[in-house]
Design a protein around this nucleic acid. Sequence first.
DNA 1: CCATAATTTGGCCATTCCGCCAACTGTGCA
DNA 2: TGCACAGTTGGCGGAATGGCCAAATTATGG
Lengths: 112, 112
Amino acid sequence: MDPRTFALYETRSRVFKALAHPSRLLIVDQLTRSEKCVCELTELVGSDISTVSKHLSVLKGAGVVEDERRGAQVWYRLRMKCVTGFFTCIESELQRRAREQFALVHPRKGSL
Amino acid sequence: MDPRTFALYETRSRVFKALAHPSRLLIVDQLTRSEKCVCELTELVGSDISTVSKHLSVLKGAGVVEDERRGAQVWYRLRMKCVTGFFTCIESELQRRAREQFALVHPRKGSL
DNA sequence: CCATAATTTGGCCATTCCGCCAACTGTGCA
DNA sequence: TGCACAGTTGGCGGAATGGCCAAATTATGG
């Protein structure tokens, strides 16, 4: 693979890496509703605030979210809006797979 | 985070984990064009065939691709078609970010 | 300026991921 | 059967990730 092409997939994969963690998916899900400060997200995730802060920095580095300091607090909001569309895509695909695997174990008459 | 909700994000994140690697993104990109056997993909990726096989098993486990044995060869094809839509989304978002960062460093008269 | 609250950063340890080699399985063919 | 080719699996060492604590940073209010 030539270096230029590799670099393209490298940056692309940074976005997927950023979303490849349950806590960060929860954060993104919450930010689709409204912007939130770190303290709120910490409450929702249930980890140490330093851990949540690092999660947010990963998401920010990938361009998924953006932050804004207002006084002592830092507010985060969703930047890459299209992720929500992909979430629903994943959901429906996984359901399709579940249906197909069920049909494989419990075949109906004439379905073969 | 309650266990049920966590499980949802857990399965969701498996898909993102699967896509969170340059070589696997290359593979998916190739499979959007047409189905390919492991040997072809190995050629394209440029790693050991055992490595590529493991990448493919990760993608398959997440439901992104599916495989079919035909004779001595195993053919892989894209199952989760909607990933390509998300790729273009990422591309445009990253370009937007690049533009904004450029504008930040080189402001035009009257833009502030 | 000092105390406090909100957040980030550094560092440590455990876990997971990645890539290679070696060994094994499956298929086609003589 | 035996051999060659295509692919998968096991395992090892090195690299990256995740979570916590502690220390540093930034802003607010006396």
